[in-house]
Each structure stands twice: as C-alpha cells, then as structure tokens.
C-alpha cells in the first residue's frame, strides 16, 4: 500500500491537509470542533484513513456530524444530516469550556510567533485599519481548547505580533488592559499546538512559547520558509516530512472532495 508520490504531483494545500489528517491519528475516538474549509477536509480524510472513530462537531450545534458531501455553508443541512443531535449553537460552542473537545481548528488573517490569531482588523483598530470577518467561534475555541491553526505562509500573515488578538495564544492580553501576559497566568486551559501552512508545520517551544519549524513539506526549501515568515524563525529542529502516499492523495481526490469544492488542486 505504501507508495510515495512526488512533490510535483500534489499541491501545497493538499500536503497541508494530509499532514493535518496524520496529526489527527492520535485523536481517534476523541472529539474535535472544526469549521468549514481545510479543517473539515482534513478531518474527513483522517476519518477515512487514520481515525475512523473521530467525532467531528461543528459550532452550529451539530454533534458527531457525518458530512454526506463537502459543505459550503457551516450552518446548512449537509452539517445536520444524520448528526447525533442538532441543538443550538451555544450547546456545541460551550463545549470548549466544558472541555469536550480534544482539538479545535482555527484560521484567520494573521498568526504570530506565540500563536495569537487575528481575524478582526489589520492595522490600528483605533486608527487606520482594514476590517476582517471577526472572531466567529475562534475566540471561544482558542480560549479553552488545544488548537491547530491553519494559515497561508506569507510574510504579512505569519508575523512577529498580531495587530489585534482575536484568539489568545501563549502570550496574550490581560483582561481590561493593554498588558501582555503568559496564558497560564490567566488560568486558560488548552492553547495552540501547531500552525499548519502550505509550506510547513510549526510547533511551540515549551520554554520560550515561540513557534519553530518542526516539519518541512517535501520539496520546500528552508530559504522559502525564511523569506515568507515575518519573524526570525527557528529552523534548527526542522526535518522533512514523511513523503505523501498515493493512497492519501487518491482518498482525498476521489472520496473526500471529488468535486474539488475547496479548490485544493
């Protein structure tokens, strides 16, 4: 079964999805809370290949969803189709505070070296800025849950410090102040465990709480990562990822997203 595919035969986004799916192997039988896009595709791929008992939950109040086909709407009938129970949004999203989810996924416009994520404004909130989507459920997930952050690898998106902390990482905002404090000081459980981009996987140093490159996707150079990262990134621990397998790409393309809804390829 093991047959490696060359890097030119898949796209960087497909690689990201495969590496996230592999990460979910250790969560078989556990619960994740996820959103639309790459996380849902990766969770489905994981369910097919690595974690058949993975429970996928969505902030739409939908528990243990089945996803008969890739959804476009986070709140539509493809999500509630044959899920265990369809309740209200609070029921599922409050599960973060209950500690119900072992992993949560978040995206955004910026992530910094401490894993803080910004999905609110780019620029100065009180001055010139560009407005983004807003938190959605990101802050609710990131406050309490171990998260996987998904972000395109570009200098302006993988930054030294975010313009606005929508979702707290390892060094975040003390409530009602401008002060930056360690996450532990605020008594928050969870925290970001990895950042997945189209080039690599970053994890966080236990001491400094800063992101370092853990896995480089096959065919990607260290120089590409350095020139696309907005801070001085530690590559000393970087290793090249296990090659992508034929079965992973085939399952992704033929079974998980045959219509290429999320334009991974």
């Amino acid at each position: 079964m093991t047959e490696a595919v060359k890097a030119e035969e898949y796209t960087p986004l497909e690689a990201a999805v495969v590496y996230v799916a592999r990460e979910l192997k250790k969560y078989d039988g556990r619960s994740v809370i996820t959103g639309i896009g790459l996380p849902v595709v990766a969770s489905l791929l994981a369910k097919r290949l690595y974690a058949p008992k993975l429970k996928i939950n969505i902030e739409s109040g939908s528990f243990d969803i089945q996803l008969p086909e890739i959804p476009i709407s986070l709140f539509g009938p493809r999500i509630s189709y044959k899920c265990s129970a369809q309740l209200n949004n609070l029921h599922s999203l409050a599960g973060t505070a209950r500690g119900d989810y072992d992993i949560g996924f978040i995206g955004g416009a910026q992530v910094d070296k401490y894993g803080n994520v910004n999905s609110t404004v780019i620029g100065d909130y009180l001055g010139g800025h560009k407005r983004l989507a807003g938190s959605g459920g990101a802050v609710d997930i990131g406050c309490f849950t171990n998260t996987i952050i998904i972000m395109p690898h570009r200098k302006e998106r993988i930054v030294n410090f975010v313009d606005y902390i929508t979702t707290p990482g390892w060094k975040c905002r003390k409530p009602f102040s401008d002060e930056i404090v360690d996450r532990q000081e605020l008594g928050l459980p969870g925290g970001p465990i990895m950042i997945v981009t189209n080039l690599c996987i970053m994890r966080f140093d236990k001491e400094s709480k800063e992101a370092y490159v853990d896995t480089i996707f096959p065919g990607v150079s260290k120089e590409t990562i350095i020139s696309n990262t907005g801070f001085d990134i530690d590559l000393s621990r970087a290793r090249t990822g296990e090659p992508i397998q034929k079965i992973e790409i085939e399952t992704l393309r033929k079974e998980v997203d045959p219509l290429n809804i999320y334009r991974l390829r």
Partner: peptide, 30 residues
C-alpha cells in the same frame, strides 16, 4: 466572540448579565 454574541439573549430568562469567560486573553475584552 460567538458565545458572547448569543449569551446576550439570556435576557430571555430575565437575566440582566451573565458571567462569561469566553473572551479571556483576547482584545475583545479591551
């Protein structure tokens, strides 16, 4: 945040406020 944007409807139960920890560490609390 999402939960807080829904917990505002706890007025349905006659409550004028609720204790919520859903935005700790975020600039939403600034």
């Amino acid at each position: 945040g999402h939960n807080d944007s829904l917990l505002i409807y706890m007025s349905a139960f006659g409550l004028s406020s609720v204790a919520s920890n859903y935005s700790i560490g975020s600039d939403l609390l600034n």
